[in-house]
């Protein structure tokens, strides 16, 4: 497990921790709140029957960007104690979890707002792609595009690369 100073649990892999494991990781005696978000595969898109999503990722960069994102989240929401943020790769059938995010804080609001911030930013800048695979046709499938990616173009380049 990629753990940064025991504060962040980050993983992009075909084998991710469960919601329970993520909750256990963020849990702390000083925290009265754990907020969590689980993204799961939905069985439909615009009247088409979806049988699964298949994810591909640029793993070292995705994990690096997730670490930066956790640090940013912690600057924005100072009372956050720990964050777990994990994303599946490979096939993800209907009702299976593709992304799990948990954050702990002494009081509820920071944890809740932090999780919302993390999922929005994940969709805007973490290099992961999903293919939606439909029931109809001969394995018809489409690469999806997040609206957050297009909206977030400015936010992705936080620091100019010195060359």
């Amino acid at each position: 497990m990629s753990v940064v100073q025991d504060k962040y649990l980050i993983r992009v892999s075909d084998d991710i921790p469960s919601l329970e494991e993520c909750n256990t990781f963020v849990s702390d005696p000083s925290c009265g709140a754990i907020s969590s978000f689980v993204g799961i595969t939905r069985d439909n898109f615009q009247n088409k029957k979806v049988i699964m999503l298949s994810y591909e990722g640029y793993v070292p960069m995705a994990e690096k960007e997730l670490k930066k994102l956790c640090v940013e989240a912690n600057e924005k929401f100072a009372s956050i104690k720990r964050i777990a943020i994990v994303h599946i790769l490979g096939d993800c059938p209907v009702e299976a979890a593709s992304v799990i995010i948990c954050a702990s804080s002494p009081h509820r609001r920071e944890a809740m707002h932090c999780v919302e911030f993390l999922i929005d930013e994940l969709k805007a800048r973490i290099p992961i792609w999903k293919r939606e695979i439909y029931e109809d046709g001969d394995g018809e499938s489409v690469w999806k595009e997040n609206v957050e990616w297009h909206e977030g173009k400015q936010r992705r380049v936080m620091v100019k690369v010195e060359r």
């Binding site: 994303h87 290099p127 997040n146 990616w149």
Partner: peptide, 26 residues
């Protein structure tokens, strides 16, 4: 080298460039 770039940059020997089409994680 695992960082997004938006403007034109001079490349160096040994650089790694990734082609990133619109993402769709989550």
């Amino acid at each position: 080298n695992e960082e997004y770039i938006e403007s034109e940059v001079v490349l160096k020997n040994g650089d790694t460039i990734a082609l990133i089409p619109p993402i769709s994680g989550g």
